[in-house]
Design a protein around this nucleic acid. Structure first.
Length: 1028
RNA sequence: GCUCGAGUGGUGGAAUUGGUAGACACGUUGGACUUAAAAUCCAAUGGCCAUUAUGGCCGUAUGGGUUCAAGUCCCAUCUCGAGUACCA
């Protein structure tokens, strides 16, 4: 009987669905285990082979834990709000809900065919009102909370109000806006309702504030810092500018320290922890305030080096600093204004790119040194950023290279305050070796003591204090988009926000006739005619009724992408609960995620915001753990095309008609595949035997051309960026030639000289070809090295994006059809370590596929391949094979070393085949071992072995040491550390006996050639080393 | 620039505490079966040298070091990748 994977896989997928095999119960005698994948955004392109990698790994682990007797929660859902569906809606007018639904159907079909053991009864979708009701609910909870520094947790805003009523705000230590001024109880009580609400807004954990935001005109929305890469939007690569807008913000900065501390107790990858740590950016130092001479103004700065305070020779303000206008003297006004104008013209990006040019202007004003009372000139310079610290620095040129360069450039004094250090060439920034000099009371102190002392003295003067500064900013939470969660917020006549009561949630998205901003520039929700809140009827009503008495306007923004993903892991525990976000019973049973698998690109986005909300939920007593995931693994990316050429070796297609120009020697190394194409042996290519190469193009059809032109319109040139480290080594220069990946479609052939070409491809040429099916072909400097790779080179940003459609060619559907889901699962694991990025190449899949066929044959040794196993006792060798496999598989799964497990299976099956083992006693446990990896074939074999229940709950085989006990060992005998021969010796032999046996051996004697060894090292059970 | 990670055959990758480098697989080459192809099976496969067989030398980015023994530990250098960037 053949291994008919198609019907087997279909059969078991239907069985699992019908029997709800993987449905998890919220209470059980068994220990719980929660395995979670980062839920996908259902894009229109469907799943590509890179997607399932993490899902396969988590599925293996989940299935393994079931075999180990755990009650496993392994849910899946969709992060279904997002930009692509909205942009598609703008183009086509189709409602995003419709396209999203359609995409989800495709995703579900694709996920199902891979045989995942998800509990689909718990599916969540962030765009489902029943789900986002709870996203809105959390928003309201945050609004109703403030952060108390004394208890170091979030507390109810009502408690804060009662303190204000009794004692004002002087005893309150809160994380709040900087501009909160002190008020007494009497003053508070005298506040108007409007004043009270405005004040409270400065304390709430989500607050409305006019803030400078990253505005992306092309997308028509605000972006968070983590949505911007190199000054352009992460999606689409559009320019981003700064703009002032009134926005909801999340006071994540309140949790900065706890977010740092929490990293200590989770088992997450170090690089990810590092990038969160960097993102939070804690720096310890002091705030110092400098009086401005001849004025009542003060300039506050943050410094990490208060010990260098006597080295201050000037101050620098960011050009945008509030005080600049006020302190600039009449004589300097023109210079300052010219400078400000010049910097304003330069984009943020230009400013960052151009670090070397030093520029600035003197304001004419002076500050007073807190200790020496000397005058310090105040400058402005764009090397000081408005957005960090206070936007002003005390400049210590001898201790900071940027200050040093600035001082040199403008001829400002550079006093030296370091003992025995030469600062004539550059600044001295080495804290550890610092000894202070020329600094009054700080003289002869090292860095640490000097810092302490300086802060103490500043405190005495009331001009400074120790301070910890964080780079982390509050997160802007409003987006000017349609396809997101609406805010449960309406505004009164004063423009003050009010939360809609919980019982009236969810506030569902209104219908709009177009998804673009309104003509007056309001967000898309401004197009809705039915978008006002009736406080009497407690429902959404027509805009026409707004009277600011009972009917008010609703917020026109929606929440950002990360809103829906910041608590979804907890919602899975009790996903159908309409009364609560989740029951306490459910959360207390499941607690937290035991294993979370997903991409590292979420390091400073989703994973930071989720931790923030989890800590907030913890403060509110809603969840028992303040970190939501104990262990996290970042699966590597499967790069669809990038290193393809590397992987296939340098297998090159040469046009047959080109062969004529080859020398005889070259021709010998070229094999004709048909009258048009031939393959050069890879090694001959790397040796440089083939000298030149032709390149082939395919013309595109009209439809392809049309789609492509749309993209081309947006760009005016393409930069060629070779990736991968081989390129330079190969002495390649030149440009990419666009080609198709489907050799059978080649029609036009063009020989391109790559050496002399510029590295820009003109748009006209580009328009003619389909870049997403690019093959790049290179000719080396002397014409001797040639390389071709399927998409080995990416062409600018747009191509990178387009190449996603390339993945459609390698989508899992085709592979499942040809080799089966079990083969795909095994293959993706076999490619390499889970956490490592690796290129996709279908070539190797035959290896794992033939392994599955061998496995199948092991159970089908009867006539004509009929199923047959024997009740006979297995041989000693077979027992040994089985048990060493059990041991290795178990260890590997626990270590997430899934690639080596697949090797282990192969070795096991090869050995058992060699032993002609057909004993049930071995084959039965083997099926269980394989089942997490290749569940369909395992179920089928399990059933054939006579079981009626699914294999999924079968206990994992128990490893028994006794089968591995050996009586002898083949010792490697080495001479000076190099293994020369092997010798079989009993394991119970003593050290001395081993030594004498080895020394007596004739091979030892022939190695020594009469010399007497200096020393003989014997490590029993391991090795013998003879030192001569 | 800074932080972190990595560098092993033609390719993906093994080597768990310092103890037989290259497991397993792809690819390649040769062979069996076949009218042929596919599938399957067998053998070889790090490089160089030698051979009737046995064998020898080199080899884990480079240069040093520690050790009886180093892919693994230490120092320096080079290269690649990821993150971050005038962060005061």
């Amino acid at each position: 009987m053949q291994y008919d994977f198609n019907s087997i896989e279909k059969k078991w997928q239907e069985y699992w669905a019908k029997n709800q095999t993987f449905k998890a119960q919220n209470n059980s005698e068994k220990e719980k285990f929660y395995v979670l994948d980062m839920f996908p955004y259902p894009s229109g392109a469907g799943l590509h082979v890179g997607h399932p990698l993490g899902y396969i790994a988590s599925d293996i682990y989940a299935r393994y834990k079931r075999h180990k007797g755990f009650n496993v929660l392994h849910p899946q859902g969709y992060d279904s709000f997002g930009l692509p569906a909205e942009q598609y809606a703008i183009q086509t007018g189709q409602h995003p809900a419709v396209t999203t639904e359609k995409n989800i159907t495709t995703y579900r079909r694709q996920l199902d065919q891979l045989g995942f053991s998800f509990d689909w009864s718990r599916e969540v979708r962030t765009s489902n009102p029943k789900y986002y009701k709870w996203t809105q609910w959390i928003f309201i909870q945050l609004f109703n909370s403030w952060y108390n520094k004394d208890s170091d947790k979030a507390e109810a805003i009502t408690d804060l109000v009662s303190v204000f009523e009794k004692e004002g705000n002087s005893s309150i230590h809160a994380v709040c806006d900087d501009d909160v001024s002190n008020f007494s109880a009497a003053e508070w009580n005298a506040f108007s309702e409007k004043e009270k609400q405005e004040t409270l807004l400065k304390y709430r954990l989500t607050y409305l504030a006019e803030s400078e935001v990253n505005w992306c005109p092309a997308l028509g929305t605000v972006l968070a810092n983590d949505e911007i890469v190199n000054g352009v939007s992460e999606r689409g690569g559009h320019p981003v500018v700064r703009k002032k807008m009134t926005q909801w913000s999340m006071r994540i900065t309140a949790y900065a320290q706890r977010l740092l501390d929490g990293l200590q107790k989770v088992d997450w990858p170090q690089p990810l922890k590092d990038s969160q740590t960097n993102w939070i950016g804690r720096s310890v130092g002091a705030s110092v305030s400098f009086k401005v001479k001849g004025s009542d103004k003060e300039i506050s700065v943050f410094t990490t080096r208060p010990d260098t305070i006597f080295g201050v020779s000037f101050m620098t303000l960011a050009p945008e600093h509030d005080l600049v206008q006020q302190i600039t003297t009449a004589e300097q006004k023109e210079a300052v204004e010219t400078y400000i104008e010049a910097t304003a013209k330069r984009s943020e990006r230009e400013r960052m790119a151009d670090v070397k040019t030093i520029s600035g202007a003197f304001t004419g004003a002076y500050a007073e040194h807190p200790f020496t009372k000397e005058s310090i000139p105040i400058w402005i310079g764009d090397y000081v950023l408005a957005g960090y610290g206070t936007g002003a620095v005390m400049s210590v040129p001898c201790g900071d290279q940027r200050d040093y360069d600035f001082a040199k450039h403008f001829g400002i004094d550079i006093p030296n305050i370091f003992k025995d250090v030469d600062i004539s060439e550059e600044a001295f920034a080495d804290k550890e070796n610092t000894v202070i000099a020329n600094s009054d009371f700080l003289n002869d102190l090292p860095y640490k003591e000097a810092t302490k002392k300086a802060i103490a003295e500043l405190e005495k003067l009331g001009q400074g204090e120790g301070k910890i500064n964080y780079r982390l900013r509050d997160a802007v939470f409003s987006r000017q988009r349609y396809w997101g969660e609406p805010f449960p917020v309406y505004y009164d006549a004063d423009g003050l926000p009010h939360m809609i009561e919980e019982q009236y949630l969810p506030i569902t998205l209104p219908e709009v006739d177009k998804y673009l901003p309104t003509e007056t520039g309001e967000p898309p929700l401004g197009n809705a005619t039915e978008w006002a809140w009736d406080t009497a009827a407690n429902k959404v009503v027509s805009n026409g009724k707004i009277d600011n008495e009972t009917v008010f306007s609703l917020d026109l923004n929606t929440m950002p992408g990360w809103a829906g993903s910041s608590q979804y892991f907890n919602r899975y525990m009790d996903p159908h609960n309409d009364e609560e976000i989740f029951s306490q019973e459910a959360i207390n049973y499941w607690q937290d995620v035991d294993l979370y698998i997903g991409g590292s690109e979420h390091a400073t986005g989703h994973l930071l915001y989720s931790r923030f909300w989890q800590k907030f939920m913890f403060d509110k007593g809603l969840v028992p753990k303040d970190e939501f995931a104990k262990k996290l693994i970042n699966q590597g990316m499967i790069t669809g095309t990038s290193a393809f050429a590397k992987r296939v070796g340098y297998q090159i297609v040469v046009l047959a008609d080109y062969l004529d120009s080859l020398s005889n020697e070259e021709k010998e190394n070229v094999k004709l595949i048909n009258d048009k194409y031939s393959i050069i042996k890879d090694r001959y290519l790397s040796e440089g035997i083939v000298k030149k190469m032709r390149v082939s193009y395919r013309k595109v059809d009209n439809k392809e051309q049309e789609e492509h032109n749309k993209l081309v319109e947006k760009i005016d040139k393409f930069l060629i960026e070779p990736i991968g480290r081989d390129i330079e080594k190969m002495g390649l220069s030149g440009k990419v030639v666009i080609d198709n990946g489907l050799r059978s479609y080649f029609r036009t052939h063009v020989l391109v000289d790559l050496v002399n070409a510029s590295d820009e491809l003109d748009v006209e040429g580009f328009k003619k070809w389909r870049p997403e099916y690019a093959e790049a072909v290179f000719i080396g400097e002397d014409g001797e090295i040639i390389e071709e790779g399927n998409g080995k080179f990416i062409v600018g940003r747009e191509i990178e994006k387009m190449s996603k459609s390339k993945f459609n060619v390698v989508n899992p559907d085709a592979i499942c059809e040809e080799y089966g889901a079990d083969s795909l699962r095994l293959y993706e694991m076999f490619l390499g370590p889970l956490e490592q990025s690796k290129p996709w190449n279908t070539a190797g899949i035959t290896g794992v596929h033939s392994f599955l066929k061998k496995l199948w044959r092991l159970y089908h040794s009867g006539a004509d391949g009929a199923f047959e196993v024997s009740e006979a006792e297995p041989s000693k060798d077979s027992w040994k094979t089985l048990h060493k496999t059990i041991k290795k598989v178990e260890e590997d799964i626990e270590n997430f070393s899934f690639n080596t497990t697949v090797s282990t299976f192969m070795i096991c099956v090869n050995e058992l085949s060699g032993q002609k083992c057909i004993s049930k006693a071995v084959l039965e446990p083997l099926a269980i071992l394989v089942s997490p990896y290749a569940p369909h074939i395992a179920e089928e074999l399990w059933q054939k072995l006579g079981h009626e229940e699914s294999i999924s709950e079968a206990p994992f085989p128990k490893f028994e040491e006794k089968y591995l006990v050996e009586s002898s060992k083949e010792y490697p005998i080495s001479f000076n550390g190099k293994m020369r021969f092997k010798l079989e010796l009993p394991l119970d032999m003593s050290k001395e006996e081993i030594e004498s046996t080895v020394m007596a051996h004739e091979k030892t004697q022939s190695q020594l050639q009469g010399r007497t060894p200096k020393k003989v090292i014997v490590v029993p059970g391991k090795i013998v080393n003879i030192v001569g």
